[in-house]
Design a protein around this nucleic acid. Structure first.
Lengths: 374, 374
DNA sequence: TACAGATATGAATCGATTT
DNA sequence: AAAATCGATTCATATCTGT
């Protein structure tokens, strides 16, 4: 039940046999290392495999800086077929090692997650949920060419469709202020003090936040369970497992990452109550944009709104823009421009009419929030 | 350009030839109907394919690839392969019909979206974003055995990786209160007045909200574009396309759904010009050369401009060239050279002073455009 | 010290047009 | 076809710098 206080890179025996190398990092290729682990021996596999991003040339920020992109060799694959073969290989070994009632978690982005999801279904895994990690602070789309890529996807799957898997429903509900935990999780990306640095720059290009692993392990393992992470990196899974009283087995090929992970896990302490609280996601009320009221037909495009004294009337555009006196802008900006003020709260400035009554458009926003809140 | 006021189910000719059956519903199997549409003829395909993996039909039984093992999984694997064959069939036809610069949207859940995503990558589509439709009011998980399934996933993909697709960046930014639109969209599920009923119960089990299609069509089509929906159902795509001044082609096998869709689209009101207007990106504004501002005396030759921090000052030449520190170049090139950057937007980099206020020279360009617009 | 302002950065499949 | 040129584009958070 106890988790080791110290962790060392394990030697590499031919077989681990029935004895699992608990709370150690195996420094080896993930498939080779997995092949030496016994059947049906771990309770969970958490995997953060390479995404195969296929990035092109450099990307520059509007102010001139260069984006420090993932250009590591471990993320490069010759083709989609090569990536698929790699995926089937590690997913297959993981399923063999997983207990019949164990579950698999994989995280990915649109570059790879569809391939991973299809292959794990092919192998007989049974998908329980797909989880959206909604990033509170993603990198913007600098070129204005697509939607801001603001989330990653996790797949949660059991060994098979008959598995009696662990799901700590009550813990999740408590964690979510007495509401059922949903399939979309809002969490910040890993930064600040938590982000590990070496020589002034990030130790790993894709370090995951501990809050993410915290929720995964709390939801789907029990204390004392064994979690295998075949793409251990700098050991987020190991650090959180130790904090939560779960065992881990890490596999990592890169000696530099292993070294960082060893130090990190050795320093990790079981969380006390105060620590737990800080790891929970801030309850961020989703903001309602004016455009949402337009999309949902509460204020249809082409209709008009006006200020309380009807000095100005504005026509609503399909994108939620306003036009008045030949000027176009958002509800806030146009209100400021017309009044010749530096700023203006459009929600209280603009009004609409329903059944003879004139109300600020903010009332519609309140209606929307009330109608859509759980 | 105009969208038909009335819509009828189209007869089923052998071929549509070069003439598209615009703003009609083809009452037929989706793949049969698609096979009669010409190559490279539509701007967008929006598809909400069946999620049910237990497709009984023998139409797409994988040939030859019999599964030898006789166990409980046989049915499951057979149905996965059947679903894949169906997916490849309709995705392939859709790609043939799509213009080279057209885009595909598919919506699905974890049951099918990974298979669809993998197959569309295999076929050469290029994924631009995966979009999470975060349901504001999802159905709870009554048994408490999983996370509340509170989202669905859309994939947005272009015909190929070299496509020059449509993305109305500015309209999306306006719609989202002047912040870049992200890849996660919070929208309510379809209910209330919008949910179509027949005989007291819902006319279609998975009717999508119009707000979802509204955002999709506003983001990735232009007025007058043609949208093909091969799984038309009760015609949400058609209703929104008509409202937004886009053309649609619907394909639906079920006569009951076709009937509902016909009535619904006939009742939909198209927006007039004022409602259709969206904020334009500077890209589509009339181009103004820097030299024009010099010629018109807004920035006379010999006067100086500088960056916001006044680290560099440049003198304007008679031809609109700039000179600073003995270097000559365009507003963009000199800005890049001085900062030692690969590129620079001179319009926002260089500033001028008027009445004590410092403004970017782009403000002058806006003044010029406003003054000279008809 | 406190606060304001400037700077740095995160899994990114992130042009278009003319010569 | 390749190269040069034109020109459009960023949000949230953490840390550093200067007053």
């Amino acid at each position: 039940m106890g988790v080791l206080e110290r962790v060392r890179a394990a030697p590499v025996p031919k077989h681990f046999g029935a004895k699992l190398p608990l709370d150690t990092i195996i420094r080896d290729d993930c498939i080779a290392a997995m092949s030496r682990l016994p059947d049906a021996s771990v309770d969970m596999v958490f995997a953060d495999p390479p995404y195969n991003l296929q990035l092109g040339g450099d990307l520059f920020r509007p102010e001139g800086g260069r984006v420090d992109a993932v250009d590591d060799d471990w993320d490069k694959f010759a083709s989609l077929q090569t990536y698929d073969a790699f995926t089937v290989a590690w997913l297959g070994e993981a399923r063999r090692i997983l207990k019949p009632n164990g579950t698999l978690w994989v995280i990915g982005s649109y570059h790879n997650i569809f391939r991973v999801g299809a292959k794990l279904q092919d192998l007989g895994y049974w998908i329980l949920n797909d989880i959206v990690w909604r990033k509170a602070n993603p990198m913007p789309n600098f070129r204005g060419t697509r939607f801001t890529n603001a989330h990653e996807t996790l797949i949660w799957a059991s060994h098979s469709d008959t598995s009696r898997y662990t799901f700590n429903y009550r813990a999740m509900k408590t964690l979510n202020d007495e509401l059922q935990m949903r399939s979309d999780w809002s969490l910040p990306i890993c930064g600040g003090q938590e982000r590990i640095k070496r020589g002034g720059s990030k130790a790993h290009p894709t370090q995951k936040p501990e809050a993410l692993l915290y929720r995964v392990l709390l939801a789907a393992t029990n204390p004392g369970d064994v979690v295998l992470d075949p793409f251990f990196g700098t050991g987020t899974t190991g650090a959180v497992a130790k904090r939560l009283g779960r065992h881990f087995i890490g596999i990592e090929r890169d000696p530099g990452y292993v070294e960082v992970a060893e130090e990190r896990i050795a320093a990790a302490l079981p969380l006390d109550e105060s620590g737990l609280r800080t790891m929970q996601s801030p309850k961020s009320q989703p903001k309602v944009a004016f455009g949402t009221l337009v999309e949902t037909g509460m204020l249809p495009p082409g209709s008009t709104i006006f200020d309380s004294k009807r000095r100005w009337t504005a026509t609503i555009g399909a994108d939620g823009s306003l036009t008045a006196n030949g000027t176009v802008g958002s509800i806030h900006k146009l209100g400021a421009t017309l009044q010749n003020l530096p700023s203006c709260n459009g929600w209280t400035f603009w009004h609409f009419e329903r059944d003879g009554a004139v109300k600020p458009i903010d009332a519609l926003r309140q209606d929307y929030i009330l109608a859509t809140e759980p």
